[in-house]
Design a protein around this nucleic acid. Structure first.
Length: 572
RNA sequence: GCCAGCGUAGCUCAGUCGGUAGAGCACAUCACUCGUAAUGAUGGGGUCAUCGGUUCGAUUCCGAUCGCUGGCUCCA
C-alpha cells in the first residue's frame, strides 16, 4: 500500500466528516504531504481544537464501514456543471484551470471529490490516523485570496508507525530551542525591547563566542581577511545598491542626522564594496576574501518571527569574494569545502541544492551560464551529490544552498553561496587586467553557518541542549561532598581554571544527590565530585552526564583528556 | 500582514459561571553535614499583558492595543 494514497484517502474521509458536521462547507484542496495530509475548507463555523476530536470520531466510523473508493470520469463540461450544482466553487475554479478534456472523481460512500487519485481500495485500509492542528491558509497560497481553514492530519499503515511519528513530534517539542534556551539561561527576547531582537545571556554568549572564535581562526587559516563596517550609512548608498528600490519593505525607515538620511544596514555587501573601491584594483590582488560577522536588521512581518530561527536583528557570518571570472570555480570549491568542514565539525549531515536562473534576472544569459557551470563543476569536482532547483536562483545570480540535517533528520537552511552579477555593475566593481584594461570583477556572497542566531537555534535543537564539551558554557562542575574537603575542591577548581577549562563549583549545603541532579539538568558534561576520600588520595571522582559509571582518576589525567576533547572538538 | 488560539508569581500551570488569587519548581532564611538525578521547615514574591467600556464592583464580560503559539505568505 502506498503511503501517499493512504494519506490522500484519509484527507477525503476527513473532508466527508467535515461536510457532514458542518453542512455548506466548500472544499478547496486536500493533498498528501510529507508526514501527513491536509484539507482546506471554506466555512462559516470557526474550527476550534475540540472540533478535531469530533471529526476524528466521525472519520473512525466512516473507516469502519469499509466504503470502497470508486472512480468515475466526467468530461470537463460535465464536471464543471456537476460541481457548480453542488455549490463547490473552488472545484469549479480548479477544473476550469485544468488542461484536460476529462477529469476523474473518486467516491467512497456518500462522498465524492474531484481527484486524480490513486486511492486505497476501501476506507477500512486507513488504520492509523490523527488530526494534528488547525491553521489558516490562503486559497492557492496567494495572500490576495480568501483565507481558508486548514486541518492538518497524519496517517500511517500501522498504529506503531503512527505512534513513532507522534513520539517524534514530542521529541521535537522537547528540543524546541525556545524552551531549552530559557531553561539553560542562554538567551531571551523582551516585549519591552521588541519582537525578534535577541539578548544573549552569559551562557549563550559564551557558546556564541566559542563559535565565533573558531569561525575567525578558520577563515584566517583559509586566506580570508577580517573587516568591520558601520551599522548605519546614508540612504544614497542603498539607492546605488538597488536595495532602496527592491528591498525597502525589509528595511527600517531612514534616521535623520544633520539633514541627511541614514539607513540601518539590512545587508553587509555595500559596506564591503565601498572598501573595495577605495583604490584601483589589479587582477594581481585577486581573489580578495573579506569576512565579517556582520549584524544586520531587517523588517520581518510580525507573523513570521520564531525564536532564534527568524528574527529582526541578526549576525550573518558573511564574506564577499572578489575574483576573476576564471577563479569562480576554484573559489566556490573552497567555500563548499569550508562550509562542509563547518557542518562536520558541528555534527550535521547536509544536503546540497543548486539553484539556477529564475524568470526575472539581471545580467546576461552567458554570464548566468558561465557562473552556473562554475558552481556545478565545483560540486562535481568535489564528487558531491546535489539536487538542482530550476529557476530558484536569486535575481542577481545562481546559488548553492546547503541544508543542515539535524539529529532528528530535519532540514534547516544553513550555508549559502551566491554569485552576484548586479552589484559589480551598479557599483562598477572593476579591476585592471593583465591587458591593462578595466574589467568587471566577479562578486561572490557566502555564509558558511547562515546567521549566528539561526545557527545557534539549530544547534540547540540538534544537541537538545547537551552541547559537546568544546561548546559547553560550563564544561566541568566541581562538587564537594562535605565541608571538610572544601579546600581540596578549591584547589581542583583553581587548577581547572589555570588550564582554561570553563568550570564552576557547587559548594552549597545540599545533599550530593541534589547537586548531581542540578548539574545533570543543566547538561554540564563533567561533574567532578570530591569528598574526604579523594582529598586524602589527591584524586577526583569523574561523572559524565551520559555515562553511568564513575571514574576515579588523577586530576592531571582528567585535565589532559578533557583538553584533548576540547581541542579536537569531539561530538559525543 | 492574514486566519485561529492564547497571555494568572522568575518558570510550568490550577482557579474565579463578576465579590482583588493558589500549587509545584525556583529564590531567601534556618536546621540537617549528607558519597553520584530531588532533606525538611519557614518566608518573600502577583496593578491576573496594557489601555478603555459595561457594572455597586472586572483578573473574569465586551472592545482596542501589545506580545506569544500553530499555520499561510515571505526569508539568513
Amino acid at each position: 500500500m502506498n503511503i501517499e494514497s493512504l494519506r490522500h484517502s484519509a484527507s477525503h474521509v476527513m473532508a466527508q466528516a467535515v461536510m457532514e458536521l458542518f453542512p455548506g462547507t466548500k472544499l478547496a484542496i486536500g493533498p498528501s504531504i510529507e508526514d501527513g495530509f491536509y484539507y482546506d475548507f471554506d466555512m462559516e463555523h470557526k474550527l476550534i481544537p475540540d472540533d478535531l476530536e469530533k471529526i476524528e470520531h466521525r472519520m473512525a466510523q466512516i473507516i469502519k464501514e469499509n466504503h470502497p473508493f470508486e472512480k468515475r470520469t466526467l468530461s470537463r463540461a460535465e464536471a464543471i456543471e456537476h460541481f457548480r450544482n453542488l455549490g463547490q466553487d473552488y472545484k469549479v475554479e480548479l477544473i476550469t484551470d485544468l488542461d484536460a478534456d476529462e477529469v476523474s472523481l473518486y467516491r467512497h460512500g456518500s462522498f465524492e471529490d474531484l481527484c486524480k487519485g490513486p486511492h486505497v481500495e476501501h476506507t477500512g485500509q486507513i488504520r492509523a490516523f490523527k488530526l494534528l492542528s488547525i491553521a489558516g491558509a490562503y486559497w492557492r497560497g496567494d495572500e490576495k485570496n480568501k483565507m481558508l481553514q486548514r486541518i492538518y492530519g497524519t496517517a500511517f499503515e500501522s498504529e506503531k508507525d503512527l505512534r513513532k511519528h507522534l513520539n517524534f513530534l514530542e521529541e521535537a517539542k522537547k528540543r524546541d530551542h525556545r524552551r531549552i534556551g530559557q531553561a539553560l539561561d542562554l538567551f531571551s527576547i523582551h516585549d519591552e525591547a521588541g519582537p525578534g531582537l535577541i539578548f544573549w545571556h552569559p551562557k549563550g554568549a559564551c557558546i556564541r563566542n566559542v563559535i565565533e572564535t573558531f569561525w575567525r581562526e578558520e577563515h584566517i587559516r583559509r586566506g580570508y581577511e577580517l573587516v568591520y563596517i558601520p551599522h548605519v550609512s546614508k540612504v544614497d548608498l542603498w539607492k546605488t545598491s538597488g536595495h532602496w528600490d527592491y528591498y525597502r519593505e525589509n528595511m527600517y525607515p531612514p534616521i535623520k542626522i544633520d539633514e541627511q538620511e541614514y539607513i540601518v544596514k539590512p545587508m553587509n555587501c555595500p559596506g564591503h564594496i565601498l572598501m573595495y573601491k577605495t583604490h584601483l584594483r589589479s587582477y594581481r590582488e585577486f581573489p580578495l576574501r573579506w569576512a565579517e560577522l556582520g549584524t544586520v536588521y531587517r523588517y520581518e512581518r510580525s507573523g513570521v518571527l520564531h525564536g532564534l530561527m527568524r528574527v529582526r536583528g541578526f549576525t550573518q557570518d558573511d564574506a564577499h569574494i572578489f575574483c576573476l571570472p576564471d577563479q569562480i570555480q576554484d573559489e566556490i570549491t573552497r567555500v563548499i569545502e569550508l562550509a562542509l568542514y563547518m557542518m562536520k565539525t558541528f555534527g550535521f549531515e547536509y544536503k546540497l541544492y543548486l539553484s539556477t536562473r529564475p524568470e526575472k534576472y539581471t545580467g546576461t544569459v552567458e554570464e548566468w551560464e558561465r557562473a552556473t557551470d562554475a558552481l556545478e563543476n565545483a560540486l562535481k569536482s568535489l564528487g558531491l551529490p546535489y539536487q538542482v532547483d530550476p529557476g530558484e536562483g536569486v535575481f542577481y545570480g545562481p546559488k548553492i544552498d546547503i541544508k543542515m540535517v539535524d539529529a532528528l533528520k530535519r532540514e534547516w537552511q544553513g550555508p549559502t553561496i551566491q554569485v552576484d552579477f548586479n552589484n559589480p555593475h551598479r557599483f562598477a566593481i572593476n579591476y585592471i587586467g593583465s591587458d591593462g584594461k578595466e574589467h568587471s570583477a566577479v562578486m561572490i556572497h557566502r555564509t558558511v553557518l547562515g546567521s549566528m542566531e539561526r545557527f545557534m537555534g539549530v544547534l540547540i535543537e540538534h544537541f537538545a541542549g547537551a552541547f559537546p564539551v568544546w561548546l559547553s558554557p560550563v564544561q566541568v562542575r566541581v562538587i564537594n561532598v562535605g565541608e571538610t574537603e572544601l579546600n581540596y575542591c578549591r584547589e581542583v577548581y583553581d587548577i581547572l581554571k589555570q588550564n582554561n577549562i570553563r568550570c564552576d563549583c557547587d559548594f552549597s549545603d545540599e545533599k550530593l544527590g541534589q547537586k548531581i541532579r542540578k548539574a545533570q539538568v543543566e547538561q554540564i558534561p563533567y561533574m567532578i565530585v570530591a569528598g574526604a576520600k579523594e582529598a586524602e588520595n589527591k584524586t577526583v571522582s569523574i561523572r559524565h552526564r551520559r555515562k553511568q559509571q564513575l571514574m576515579d582518576t588523577s586530576l592531571q589525567d582528567f585535565v589532559v583528556n578533557i583538553k584533548r576533547e576540547i581541542q579536537e572538538k569531539i561530538n559525543e
